[in-house]
């Protein structure tokens, strides 16, 4: 089901853990599938000097978190801002289609952690809740079929492209 790169990151995840005195922290959660990811950043001179993650989720979610930390480690904040979920999936040499939009949340968590870092630097205090944003198979305004990656209308019950039911239970 998963390729060798994904399985390697799943079996030997890099940078697992918590940074107690983190410069920034970002958390994303998916209320539908239940995947959750927390990213901790340590930033020195606007460069990510350490990054750690904790993830509750499937094999793909753990591999995504691990790969993301490898990509982001050592990058400047400006460089890290350009990291997308697509970059992570590409570095993993691909993910199964139905996993692309439910477990590929790593970059979202990273961007929230960066935002948190910048807010703290600017002296803004945010309530903790506002940092955890729901991620429901959507990117901005768009929804995607988790099976074939086709863009969908929000109220669609069936994916026109692959005929998969999106609303049925189970």
């Amino acid at each position: 089901m998963y390729n060798k790169v994904v399985m390697d990151h799943f079996r030997n995840p890099r940078n697992v853990g918590v940074i107690d005195d983190a410069s920034g922290q970002g958390e994303v959660g998916n209320p539908l599938c239940g995947d959750m990811m927390t990213i901790y950043l340590k930033v020195d001179d606007d460069r990510i000097s350490d990054i750690k993650f904790q993830t509750f989720g499937c094999g793909s979610a753990i591999a995504v978190s691990s790969m993301l930390t490898e990509i982001a480690m050592g990058k400047t904040i400006e460089e890290a801002k350009n990291i997308t979920n697509k970059d992570v999936a590409k570095a993993l040499e691909g993910l199964p289609k139905n996993k692309l939009h439910c477990s590929n949340l790593g970059a979202d968590a990273l961007q929230l952690a960066i935002q948190d870092y910048e807010d703290r630097k600017a002296g803004k205090v945010r309530p903790r809740e506002s940092r955890s944003e729901a991620h429901e198979h959507s990117h901005g305004e768009q929804c995607y079929c988790p099976y074939c990656d086709i863009e969908l209308e929000e109220s669609t019950e069936f994916c026109e492209a692959c005929q998969h039911s999106l609303t049925e239970e189970h």
């Binding site: 239940g34 995947d35 509750f56 499937c58 979610a61 439910c102 239970e169 189970h170």
Partner: peptide, 23 residues
């Protein structure tokens, strides 16, 4: 029976109906 493994979007309808939380 996790949703992730079965390729469906939601937790098992069986487990939810016996009162389990999604997590």
């Amino acid at each position: 029976r996790s949703a992730c493994a079965t390729g469906s979007l939601r937790a098992s309808h069986v487990l939810i109906s016996i009162g389990l939380s999604h997590a």
